[in-house]
């Protein structure tokens, strides 16, 4: 009796669990089986793909640098502050995480577009941001920065606050403590935050398409190129998809192996 009951509950849980796994794995397997590995190198060198990959590399790297330079100080303030406003800032930060990317793109247009909140003050100087590579970077930073800030803030909150007290009695300014002690200690957090943010930026599609368009060589990043190629040349689209999949898995492996355990 007990065995039968066990079996039944195992099936009740096991079947949906198996289905969930299938839903996640089958598409990946399908992509991998459809791939023609031999032609991947040649496909990557085609005139549509190569600029897109180059653009993706350029914009995601710029995004990562922006996260590092701007996101680290933000994480620092969030981690140290117990002010009520901090909770609101942190809540605000998570909005881009759950926002539909297209809505993010529309929001970016409202800010940086020709008639946007900021854009209207730029256009008299002949500065146009929409549909440029700068727009791609802005879109990627918008979606990726929260990943970075939350990861680094978490790591910084894990630091013993007494270390800072000791550092201050030793005459260290905030900046010196951050540079010589706090940052080196949260380096794993910084690295995993960067990897997460970079991977998110690499996959960015909706906000980029809405805000920056899909101009080859200028705003057409690798994911946009895949979408465009799917109609013109599906085999090449699959090859690029494979590359993006491999890169994502590599980032994940790097994270798990070194920092997530």
């Amino acid at each position: 009796m007990r065995y039968a009951a066990g079996l039944r509950s195992r099936l009740t849980l096991g079947i949906p669990a198996g289905l969930a796994l299938l839903l996640l794995v089958v598409p990946l397997v399908a992509l991998l089986t459809r791939a023609d590995w031999a032609r991947v190198p040649a496909d990557l060198a085609t005139p549509t793909v190569l600029p897109a990959l180059r653009l993706s590399l350029l914009t995601t790297s710029t995004t990562a640098v922006l996260c590092l330079l701007l996101g680290t100080p933000l994480a620092w303030f969030l981690a140290r502050s117990d002010h009520a406003a901090t909770r609101w800032v942190r809540a605000l930060l998570t909005v881009p995480l759950v926002l539909p990317p297209v809505v993010g793109g529309v929001a970016l247009l409202m800010a940086w577009g020709r008639l946007g909140l900021i854009g209207q003050h730029l256009s008299p100087f002949g500065v146009q941001i929409t549909f440029t590579t700068v727009a791609v970077v802005l879109a990627e930073t918008f979606v990726a920065m929260p990943f970075y800030v939350l990861a680094v803030e978490g790591a910084m909150r894990g630091l013993d606050p007494r270390l800072e007290s000791v550092a201050r009695t030793l005459g260290a300014s905030d900046l010196r403590y951050l540079r010589t002690v706090a940052l080196p200690l949260v380096l794993p957090g910084v690295a995993s935050g960067l990897a997460l943010a970079w991977a998110r930026a690499l996959g960015e599609f909706g906000a980029t398409l809405t805000f920056a368009g899909s101009y080859p060589g200028r705003t057409q990043t690798a994911p946009l190129a895949v979408y465009a190629l799917l109609e013109q040349d599906p085999a090449v689209a699959i090859s690029v998809s494979i590359v993006l999949l491999v890169v994502s898995v590599l980032v994940l492996a790097l994270l798990r192996g070194r920092w997530l355990r």
């Binding site: 013993d160 007494r162 000791v166 201050r168 009695t169």
Partner: peptide, 14 residues
């Protein structure tokens, strides 16, 4: 603290 001239040592060497 950084403008005082103190040395601080706790039970945990930190």
């Amino acid at each position: 603290p950084e403008q005082r001239h103190v040395g601080l040592m706790l039970a945990d060497p930190l």
